[in-house]
Design a protein around this nucleic acid. Structure first.
Length: 468
DNA sequence: ATGTCC
């Protein structure tokens, strides 16, 4: 009777290198022993491998058993092909990150938008369709970061004639960064079950309450401007002409940021990937954690929407005008959609605008350049997506080091833009040319109208200070 | 993006 692999499996050896090594050593060194004694020896090594690490015969086996299990999920050698829009203006790092994402075993398809730049895991401007799995960092840190545009039935001459009143309205009714309202407005979202059913969400309810209606930092803004509709746009319900409008860009604040960090940590624990892909760790949607993230992500998205609506409501009170229409869209989110063959896929848009056929969206420019009201064309090679803005031309660090405040102020004056506050890293020259970005994606969206910023508020309560 | 290190 000779010892077999099955005998070893019965005493707890899993299929793998240790099992093979055990059989080899037994055959070579312990052939004279009775099978029962051989098995007994292997059992002892299995139970207490540390005792055998200096054993001249059993050391290799003991070392192998002691080695941490290598459960790393391998990337596919070749990625799924994906289309890059505006490749000539996209940094190398973003394309490298998309290459890695295209090689995940869960990846079905991908696309890179013309405003893409490097992020954590999936690049900003990256779109990734996966099979039954969600990547928290494929959604992004600011879950549900979105745009909201309200067009008012008011003349654009107010922007000049009532400029000071409009500025004051922005200052009094918007809060950025750490600042929050003394009296937050209640909202139906706080009745959602997720706030009681999911422990991590429950712990964030107070913070969400304090921050509702506020805007974030970085590239978030609330601004008055002019919507220009060149020809009749039935889906907007607007006649051609110019309208006073309010555009906001913000996300899910501390709620979304904390949820993103929480579920990314869980994903990285349960989904070990090679170093270069580790931030792309995913949650299987059939697992409890995956389903919980999905609920929490949707809550954060609805909370971001609620924040925008409160911003616009507060402004409407001051304007004493009812909105003619609103357009809004998430651009950091994941959706269950159908691919070209009708299969359900999870589409991650991390800094990308949904652009399914007929879907309306807003693609902002910079504080001194127009944004665009768009209607998706439903192009499958872009996974029904478009860019979410102009995209950064330089990093925040480089912008702060190289851009001169005096130069920014001249550009703003030339564009007729009044700035209440912002950081230098949000200066127009830190961004790519929005017109070139739009040209790179003309096959993805139709432009229905433009929005030119006129009175802008971002995080930071002072204009750019000029120093000698 | 962010209670910017529970």
């Amino acid at each position: 009777m000779k010892l077999t692999g099955n005998d070893l499996k019965k005493i707890g050896y899993a299929e793998g290198k240790a099992l093979g090594l055990a059989l080899t050593i037994i055959e070579r060194e312990y052939a004279a022993w009775k099978p029962a004694d051989q098995l007994n020896l292997l059992q002892r090594v299995k139970d207490d491998p540390a005792r055998y690490i200096h054993d001249e015969k059993l050391s290799p086996l003991a070392m192998e058993i002691l080695k941490p299990a290598d459960s790393t999920i391998a990337l596919e050698p070749a990625g799924k092909p994906y289309k890059i829009y505006g490749a000539e203006a996209i940094e190398e790092g973003a394309i490298h990150q998309m290459d890695i994402a295209s090689r995940l075993p869960i990846t079905v398809a991908g696309a890179l938008m013309p405003d893409a730049h490097q992020g954590y895991g999936l690049p900003i401007g990256g779109v990734l369709a996966t099979k039954n799995a969600v990547i928290p960092y494929g959604v992004g840190v600011d879950i549900g970061c979105r745009m909201c545009l309200t067009v008012y039935d008011l003349p654009v001459t107010l922007l000049e004639d009532n400029k000071e009143a409009l500025k004051k309205m922005l200052v009094n009714n918007t809060m950025f960064g750490q600042a929050t309202f003394k009296q937050p407005k209640d909202h139906a979202i706080f009745e959602r079950d997720e706030f009681s059913d999911i422990a991590v969400v429950k712990g964030l309810k107070d913070k969400a309450w304090r921050q509702i209606g506020s805007s974030g930092g970085g590239n978030h803004f609330v601004e008055f401007g002019i919507v220009d509709i060149p020809s009749v746009a039935d889906e907007l319900g607007l006649q051609p002409g110019k309208y006073l409008a309010l555009l906001s860009h913000s996300g899910s604040r501390g709620l979304g940021a904390t949820l993103a960090a929480h579920y990314t940590r869980i994903a990285m624990d349960v989904c070990k990937l090679p170093q270069e892909a580790k931030h792309l760790a995913w949650l299987d949607l059939d697992t409890e954690a995956g389903q919980e993230y999905w609920l929490a992500m949707n809550l954060a998205g609805d909370y971001a929407s609620a924040c925008h609506h409160q911003i616009h409501e507060r402004m409407a009170v001051g304007l004493r005008s009812n909105p003619l229409m609103m357009v809004e869209n998430h651009h950091n989110f994941a959706w269950k959609e159908q691919d070209a063959s009708g299969e359900e896929v999870i589409v991650h848009r991390k800094g990308a605008t949904p652009a399914g056929k007929g879907v309306l969206g807003i693609i902002p420019g910079s504080m001194a350049t127009p944004g665009f009201i768009v209607r998706g064309k439903g192009v499958s090679t872009s996974i029904n997506s478009a860019s979410h803005g102009a995209g950064r031309l330089m990093s925040r660090t480089k912008a702060k080091q190289t851009i001169l405040p005096g130069h920014v102020n001249k550009v703003l004056t030339a564009a007729g833009v009044e700035l209440i506050g912002s950081g230098l890293d949000e200066a127009p020259m830190a961004y790519k040319n929005i017109h070139e970005v739009m040209a790179s994606q003309h096959e993805l969206v139709d432009v229905l109208g433009t929005f030119m910023p006129k009175i802008v508020r971002m995080c930071g309560d002072e204009k750019f200070k000029e120093v000698d």
